[in-house]
Nucleic acid binder design. Structure first.
Lengths: 191, 191
DNA sequence: CACTGAAACGGAGAGGTCCCCGATTCACCT
DNA sequence: AGGTGAATCGGGGACCTCTCCGTTTCAGTG
């Protein structure tokens, strides 16, 4: 999982974990918090934070890496109980809810999509895998196109979330998701 | 067009126009530029800039208000020569190109969508109207669903642009647009 | 013309992101 | 233990966004 050959020095590892823990706590408060404030609260200099997490997304991804796990089970359950296209729609709605409760996730996904890093990092990697699973099930059932790229579908999802991710836009988001899921169905041969 | 009853004072009007001209010039350079720098270059205090344009989007919208016009003619031409759904796809591609040449437009559209202000301001108002025209033509031809909200379609467009708006993502964006336009077609009755 | 109140201005400053670089600490070897 | 180079640290600063509030300027009035 760690791409670098040399493991972190003990103090660096400690700082890193402490930063993640501090950020996790700070994020759950809901109120916006500056990165410098997180560093200060963790008792390290801001440069240390930026050295471990070059972008805000890197930190966000680490903070939520464990919390994303249940969404995979959700996807499995949905696939077991509904037709794939409907399961996809339901899962996206579920994900929107999950993301809505967690500051910074949508922005992070958009930023990673825009820079071609979707699928890098724990959270969007998991999202990509889950989408891959559901899309494949849909293709096997003939309900969704085959050959769809989970990265692109994840990108579309991130895009609409960035535009209509707020809880009070739930209805609007749902209509957008309907459009998207329908667009993922196989093209009808009769125009 | 000016929603306020009292016209601007002469000096305020002068400053406003000068700010827009300065920003237009600064934006075309391509390099990122700070709002304070624009204010300074225009010879006014930064507070004056923020008073005239409370958000960055407000300034961006004014800067490009004239440049958006040709896109309406493009839409008409496309509608005259192609089937509506295809015209919609082509116009979105055309808009992506237009937006790609103009710093800040995508971010502004996303911000305005997210805050429910899509359709406010010159540029996104024009986009909304054009989309309304094309969507209606598509609905009349039975090629697109009826009752689609241009604001929502514009939001989806802004979303995918924020994720895949860079010129080197053109191919990816085009696949996303295919999904979206297909999703806007009427639901097939036979599942 | 002053005169005056409202409108508009602008600089300073609070708070944010992010990086530079001299100081420090660790891990390993003797 | 003590030495040493490399890894890591952290404060301070550059630059950004955005606002507060004392000062200036405009546009009508007698």
């Amino acid at each position: 999982m760690n791409p670098s050959r040399t493991p972190l020095r003990a103090d660096a590892q400690r700082n890193r974990e402490h930063l993640i823990a501090t950020a996790a706590e700070a994020f759950t408060s809901g109120r916006p918090i500056s990165l410098d404030a997180i560093a200060k609260r963790a008792g390290v200099g801001s440069a240390t934070l930026y050295r471990h997490f070059p972008t805000r997304e890197d930190l966000v991804e680490e903070v939520y890496r464990d919390q994303i796990r249940p969404l995979r089970d959700d996807a499995r359950t949905l696939l077991a109980n509904e037709r794939p296209a409907q399961a996809l729609h339901a899962w996206m709605r579920r994900f929107a809810e999950w993301a809505g409760e967690r500051r910074g996730i949508c922005e992070a996904l958009v930023a990673m999509s825009a820079t071609g890093r979707f699928g890098t990092g724990p959270v969007c990697d998991e999202v990509q895998q889950i989408l891959g699973m559901v899309l494949e099930a849909g293709a096997d059932a003939g309900e969704l196109r085959s050959g769809l790229d989970p990265v692109e579908v994840g990108g579309i999802l991130a895009g609409v979330l960035s535009v209509a991710g707020a809880p009070e836009q739930r209805a609007q988001l749902d209509r957008m998701l309907t459009v998207i899921v329908d667009g993922l169905r196989p093209r009808q041969l009769a125009q």
